[in-house]
Amino acid sequence: MSPETLPVDANSERTGVTPLAAVAARDDSEISQGLAEKPVFAVRDLSVHYGKSIALKGVTMDIRPRRITAIIGPSGCGKSTLIRCFNRMNELIPGAQVSGEILYHGEDIYASGVDPVVVRRHIGMVFQRPNPFPKSIYDNVAFGAKINGYRGDMDELVERSLRRAALWDEVKGKLKKSALDLSGGQQQRLCIARAIAVEPDVILMDEPASALDPIATTRIEDLMQELKQEYSIIIVTHNMQQAARVSDETAFLYTEVDAETSARWGILVEFGDTGQIFTKPRDKRTEDYVSGRFG
């Protein structure tokens, strides 16, 4: 966690708002002292509209720190919409509107005056397809830090990030080579290293292994277990077994359909300990979905 205090926005209408970096840093120390565990995110009655149609309705959940939280559900249930709310990525889609609250360490990330760029610096994201820049391995990792004006030892930062992403041993002799020459699995770990290099607090992963082969998938899953020692991870996955293997908590989203208008939107059906979701789900719809009876 960066100790620096970032301004929210010079034009903030709110007063007394604690800057995100300071909030995150404060909670980090509290956690390390073993004090009461506060959620990283408190989601309250979150809904998302795209234009006039609703995509996600009334989601309320807490994301706990240093855990892997999986979001599962059938296609079109709003999984990606939900994960993109956590770092305000939905705003990049024209017509998207978010209502309700997402409190990040107690601060509303959608409050007027909060800079989405600052939000995304604390809450990194890894996408379905590895998307390294057409630059060297080194530059890919250093990119975010350079933009943020990092003044420390860049070589050290690149090495540390690559080590954390379990990629260092494979690339240490070819840091100046193009990132595009790496295998798909290596490229995805490079993207994770790139996300880590800006010292985020949370890593969002939108189907991070769906384009990878089984061995590369296993490496990503192992890596997630390492990363959760330091980061909170939220993962969207279509692969239920992956959710069962890697996550500590699981959220099951489901599509509701309006009988008259055929409008469809996602709702959160059940959220709980992954062991419980996969052995004795409370809701029949969860049971039917995880056991493959629909979807």
């Binding site: 239920m240 077994q241 069962a244 979701i277 996969f278 052995t279 004795k280 789900p281 969860t286 049971e287 995880v290 056991s291």
Partner: peptide
């Protein structure tokens, strides 16, 4: 088949 939930039980 990696059964879960009621199937696993």
């Amino acid at each position: 088949q990696a059964p879960v939930a009621g199937d696993l039980r």
